[in-house]
């Protein structure tokens, strides 16, 4: 790999990292797993002047459940999530997505928080986080703030962090009642980004009706996108094939895919619809289990 020259520092505390980021300003970039940033530097699509490697900072690799949230720290690798029983017990969509992110080698290094920060519209995690109503905990030298995932994912490779801020944690609220989720991804091979993927999450009320629904789409818009009309169609309804089909059709309408080497727009929209329906069926089965 032959990137342009860059400066590098590997602070051993979060404070030090935040201070460096503040001092270096726009020219500095956080280096987490490096699985998106380094390929971009290799292709000379990114040429940060200064890399702040956060891998030596202790205490950022936690997965825990506290105050009604599942919390995932900045240095939790994709593979940690694949292997986490806590995640499996807590959130079906996250557990179902983890083994579909990249390939085993990349999963050993890449982080969930890095992926969320990266805002690649073909990345998997932000769809899951949108469907699960996650929050991003951002920290800078001037303190911490919590950003709803809908406000965090701004656009194509663009998040709402301020200069000097770092994603310290991503957190996902626990299901209010019975809940289930799924992530269905169509990829061309292992390690491929999604051609189309759909994250779904359902929660059921005491009456067995759908109390909350989350549906979000990968790789079919300029950013990971919630299918809000489809979600609304579900809430308050008795789960049924008909309502799932209706939601699937609405989800397809929320997709604005491009025709490219991976397939035509028409087909991608069809896959959104099929995967939404299948994802809702799987989510329901999990919620009822």
């Amino acid at each position: 790999m032959f990137p342009p020259a860059f400066a590098y520092s590997a602070p051993e505390s979060l404070d030090e990292a935040l201070a460096t980021l503040t001092n270096e300003g726009e020219s500095a970039r956080v280096l987490a797993g490096g699985q998106s940033l380094i390929p971009m530097m290799k292709l000379r699509l990114a040429s940060p002047a200064h890399l702040v490697d956060i891998n030596n900072i202790p205490g950022l690799d936690y997965i825990d459940a506290a105050n009604g949230y599942l919390r995932i720290g900045a240095l939790v690798r994709h593979n940690d999530i694949v292997n986490s029983e806590l995640v499996t017990a807590h959130n079906g969509a996250i557990a179902s997505a983890a083994p579909w992110v990249a390939d085993p080698l990349v999963r050993n290094r890449g982080t969930l928080c890095g992926s969320v920060a990266h805002c690649d519209p073909e990345g998997d995690w932000n769809s899951v986080m949108l469907a699960a109503r996650a929050q991003v905990v951002a920290q800078s030298t001037s303190g911490e703030r919590v950003i709803a995932i809908d406000d965090f994912v701004v656009d194509f490779f663009t998040n709402s962090l301020e200069p000097g801020e770092i994603v310290k944690e991503v957190r996902v609220p626990k299901y209010a009642g019975r809940g289930g989720g799924a992530y269905l991804k169509l990829e061309r091979k292992i390690g491929d980004y999604a051609t189309v993927a759909v994250a779904t999450q359902l929660q059921l009320g005491e009456d067995g009706k759908i109390s909350e629904a989350g549906i979000a789409l990968t790789a079919v818009n300029n950013k990971n996108t919630r299918a809000i009309a489809a979600e609304r169609a579900l809430v308050g309804e008795e789960p049924s094939d008909e309502i799932f089909k209706e939601a699937a059709a609405l989800a397809a309408q929320a997709a604005e895919p491009e025709s490219n080497v991976r397939g035509t727009a028409e087909w991608k929209r069809n896959v959104v619809s099929v995967y939404t329906r299948r994802g809702l069926e799987a989510s329901l089965a999990q919620a009822r289990a």
């Binding site: 390929p39 292709l43 390939d103 061309r188 091979k189 292992i190 390690g191 491929d192 980004y193 080497v261």
Partner: peptide, 16 residues
């Protein structure tokens, strides 16, 4: 050229 790296030009792995 579309397919100028191994993310775009696909080589199967043991998985698939």
């Amino acid at each position: 050229c579309i397919g100028s790296n191994f993310m775009d030009y696909l080589v199967p792995t043991a998985w698939e």
